[in-house]
């Protein structure tokens, strides 16, 4: 077996990191990670970060907690914080166990105490893929992308799978190809994932003009090489974020793969896509 063949045989993602918190988006991320892990025979690691700030609340004489549901105010001491965190941790572990057992995959549960971003960044180093709810337990519903997700997108090059409540990982993969090197890399990730899941692949390739359409389709086909699975390539002029989201929905996309270097997957444009898309997004480097 050549080194290239060995590379082909190697699973795309062996180790998937799932950031766990109590938000519904995080639970969606967990379920998607488990499903993906099952399809590509990977294992998952559930990471629950005990925010260091919680433990700094307890000692003050005036520390109190306002209930999110009832608005009631109750005293907060070190003991009650510890109990809440322990309970939350156990809940996360149970959820991870249940989902992993259902998907018949290997799993590992880990808790770390510290800053959320720093701990997640540190844990991401050993992972092939990071899965997280696109927003965490944000207090407001303004931006679609949470602070932690934003930080991770900026500070790590690892592929990140963004999920949210209500959107499930589907079987049909759609990849955005913009001719850049990163776009090519995203296409290779899509190709390999398609092979491993044995599904169909649709590629939305950005053309510069109508005459350019055949060229870009040819390029995609060349990149895909010997992919012997149903594949369709659409050449479109680079759309606006909202229309790209609509296009993916109309093609029944189950997973959108794109490079995070593509301008449509940055800042406000990414926010707009997230607001309108109906499937998870896998952002490669």
């Amino acid at each position: 077996m050549t080194s290239e063949e060995k590379e082909q045989e190697k699973p795309l993602f062996e180790h998937i990191l799932v950031a766990l918190d109590a938000s519904p988006h995080s639970m969606a991320a967990l379920e998607a990670a488990a499903r993906l892990a099952h399809s590509i025979e990977a294992n998952i690691e559930g990471l629950f970060i005990e925010d260091i700030n919680w433990f700094r609340l307890g000692p003050h004489s005036f520390s109190k907690e306002v209930s999110e549901i009832t608005g009631n105010i109750r005293p907060l001491d070190q003991g009650s914080i510890e109990r809440q965190v322990r309970a939350l941790s156990k809940r996360m572990e149970r959820a991870l166990r249940r989902v992993s057992e259902l998907a018949s995959i290997n799993y590992e549960f880990r808790t770390e105490r510290g800053g959320v971003e720093s701990e997640l960044l540190s844990a991401s180093e050993g992972a092939d893929l990071i899965t997280l709810g696109r927003i965490g337990q944000s207090m407001t519903r303004g931006p679609k992308l949470g602070r932690t997700a934003k930080a991770l997108l900026e500070k790590t090059t690892k592929p990140i799978l963004l999920l949210q409540k209500g959107l499930k990982l589907g079987d049909s993969i759609i990849c955005i190809y913009d001719r850049s090197e990163q776009g090519k890399a995203a296409l290779q990730v899509a190709k390999k994932l398609t092979q491993q899941i044995e599904t169909k692949l649709q590629v939305v390739a950005f053309k510069n003009s109508d005459e350019d359409a055949r060229t870009v389709i040819k390029q995609v086909k060349k990149e895909l090489g010997d992919l012997r699975l149903p594949t369709r390539v659409f050449a479109v002029e680079a759309p606006e974020a909202f229309h790209l989201a609509r296009l993916v929905t109309s093609k029944n996309g189950g997973l959108l793969i794109a490079s995070r270097s593509q301008p449509l997957f940055k800042g406000q444009a990414l926010e707009r896509i997230l607001a309108n898309i109906k499937c998870p997004i896998l952002l490669t480097s």
Binding site: L57, H60, A87
Partner: peptide
């Protein structure tokens, strides 16, 4: 003061230089 999300709700905590103050600092 910082508004912190706790596992079951919200809480306010004194801040110093963008960080939550420790017990000793308080």
């Amino acid at each position: 003061l910082a508004l912190i999300r706790t596992p079951a709700g919200f809480s306010f905590a004194p801040m110093q230089e963008g960080e939550i103050m420790s017990q000793e600092e308080v």
